[in-house]
Design a binder for these strands. Sequence first.
DNA 1: CTGCTATTAGTACCAGGTATTAAGTTCTTT
DNA 2: AAAGAACTTAATACCTGGTACTAATAGCAG
Lengths: 189, 189
Amino acid sequence: MRVPKKERQRLLQETIEHNPFIKDEELSKQFSVSIQTIRLDRMELKIPEVRERIKHVASEHLDEVKSLSMSEVIGDMIDLKLDDSAISVLDIEKEHVFSRNEIARGHVLFAQANSLAVALINDELALTTKADIRFSRQVHLGERVVAKARVLKLRGDGRTDVTVESYVGEECVFDGDFTIYRRSEEEQA
Amino acid sequence: MRVPKKERQRLLQETIEHNPFIKDEELSKQFSVSIQTIRLDRMELKIPEVRERIKHVASEHLDEVKSLSMSEVIGDMIDLKLDDSAISVLDIEKEHVFSRNEIARGHVLFAQANSLAVALINDELALTTKADIRFSRQVHLGERVVAKARVLKLRGDGRTDVTVESYVGEECVFDGDFTIYRRSEEEQA
DNA sequence: CTGCTATTAGTACCAGGTATTAAGTTCTTT
DNA sequence: AAAGAACTTAATACCTGGTACTAATAGCAG
């Protein structure tokens, strides 16, 4: 359980890095050393106390605007008819663009379209199996992208063809054909 | 300087909302009341102490940290030969998956592949114009996806064909053919 | 003046530390 | 095996930014 100092300090650094909220007491238990040893280690490694660490994380937060919530549908869903059609809106902000030229990254538009296509499916599980996509015009910082998804065909075998077209104003900026797999419980990515 | 209680509490709420880092002492000075009055106000308004507030801000931050990686190359680039080939590694974590079944979302794999294809291009500007992709097997939480990109053809007109294959171990989980547009300064998304 | 709310004061206590001094405990190295 | 250095633990005083509680006072309406 007990590791040599160098190794412990390496692990300590890692541990704190990935969980800045951890207290000395917990650390001392984790490494089976006294709390004082942990404090000495922190001193040597110049790692501040837990409150300072938390404060730091929090203040970084303040600088940043909203980030991409990769985890949920990207954009705001404004209309949804299951197994039929759906619309979502995404305002292009600076976390979506290349800093050099302020043009939206391809996977942002893809993410909006893909999320929408998946959300459209009226089933427990829906996963994209295939997509053919085209980016027809660049999208700039500040523009509003409206994605429209429509079910083309509900096949018997669990696959559904969905087409998505994304617009900035009147202009089509992206379109794609998706094949989405649905199932009650398992498989396919 | 001294305002009635109701008004003070309204202002207090606002003040704290827009600066969660402020301490009772500072607040008491700002409103020209004693520190105890501030504490009573916080009690009535159910506003927690400063450390808790900071902790809260910081923990919100933690949820978002990971998704920020969306803005840069997704995954860690472990090999890169410009205009030739590149490899990146992405460990699937919980922000990448559907919570229901712990299967990675399609646009995560797409983002990794797309970022890699774009990074591969040895030019100021590189933008995806077209992609045909297939998801051949679902990827689960905790798995490590290795994406390998290879340039197929450098066309004269600024377009480059790149193929990307992503693996978990020996298994191919994703593959796609991308057409990337390059240019010194402007256009195309 | 009485009564009521609002405010202020004071004290004890807590978490999670810092800072310092001192006393072990190991590991080497001779 | 003895000496020394490096490492670890202990003990104590003190700090910040509070909580929780009790009690005293201020200001004003009826």
